[in-house]
């Protein structure tokens, strides 16, 4: 099995606090994995390791078989173009139109002549693809709107569209449905996973909702205080596993 993302006893320390503690994970090139846990359990840190946005204090990270610690900046940039992230804050530029946000994320339109063309008259095929993606997420009409004028839920769906537009080998989504209403959230997750499965890409999604984790994913990884509590298929998860994850939390909840 090809491996998309692998961590080997990775620890990350931020100012004396251990965000991740000896986490070893291996995610296959066509797997869909949910990462669950309370706020501060280390979900976001784990996802940010893959793009080398966070560097491990101990241990090693490999993406598509490349050890991140050993490769040059140039190789890293090439590698990063095969990833897509949906960060919590969306990473959308509010001053750009939605279409421009998508074009900006295109991994192979990076040269100055691409930039010039995309600023003036973007290629119709790309516009069509962008519109199709947005439409399937229910936000097709926002194509030419300023991104800053969208509502929270719309912006989050645009962020998902932006990630899928890259056709990533590894999609890392950090709570991509946090501010979308529940029925819409199911649609968004289903579309995301479906499109990744069809193209044969891996997906790692951090989530709040246990029911979504069980319904859509091949594997569920539970994190608590930076350690892996469980790592198994959702069918084998029982109520006591979830209880172990959230024990001692206030009112069972996270506030995001």
């Amino acid at each position: 099995m090809d491996v998309a993302f692998e961590t080997d006893r990775v620890s990350v320390v931020f100012g004396g606090r251990r965000a991740l503690d000896a986490v070893s994970l291996r995610i296959g090139a066509d797997e869909a994995v949910a990462v669950v846990g309370r706020s501060g359990a280390g979900k976001t840190t784990l996802l940010r390791l893959a793009s080398a946005s966070v560097l491990p204090t101990e241990g090693g990270v490999e993406v598509f078989g490349e050890p991140l610690a050993e490769i040059s900046m140039r190789q890293l940039q090439t590698l990063r173009r095969r990833l897509a992230t949906v960060p919590q804050d969306g990473a959308l530029v509010g001053e750009l139109r939605v279409l421009e946000n998508l074009l900006a994320a295109h991994p192979h339109r990076q040269r100055w002549w691409h930039l010039l063309r995309d600023s003036l008259w973007p290629p119709p095929s790309e516009v069509l693809r962008a519109h199709g993606l947005l439409e399937s997420l229910g936000v097709g009409d926002t194509l030419y709107l300023p991104t800053g004028s969208l509502s929270g839920g719309e912006a989050q769906r645009v962020a998902v569209a932006r990630a899928l537009f890259r056709r990533p080998g590894l999609l890392l989504a950090d709570e991509p449905v946090a501010s979308v209403d529940p029925t819409r959230a199911e649609e968004v997750l289903a579309l995301m996973l479906d499109s990744q499965r069809r193209r044969g890409g891996a997906t790692v999604v951090s989530l709040h909702q246990p029911e979504f984790a069980s319904a859509f994913f091949d594997r569920v990884v539970g994190l608590r205080d930076g350690r892996v509590v469980f790592d198994t298929s959702p069918t084998e998860l029982g109520a006591e596993d979830w209880a172990a994850l959230y024990r001692g939390s206030q009112a069972g909840g996270e506030a995001s």
């Binding site: 080398a52 990063r80 990833l83 897509a84 992230t85 100055w112």
Partner: peptide, 11 residues
């Protein structure tokens, strides 16, 4: 964020 997604400096 763009740089971390592999964007060139110009982009």
């Amino acid at each position: 964020a763009l740089r971390e997604g592999g964007a060139s400096q110009a982009a």
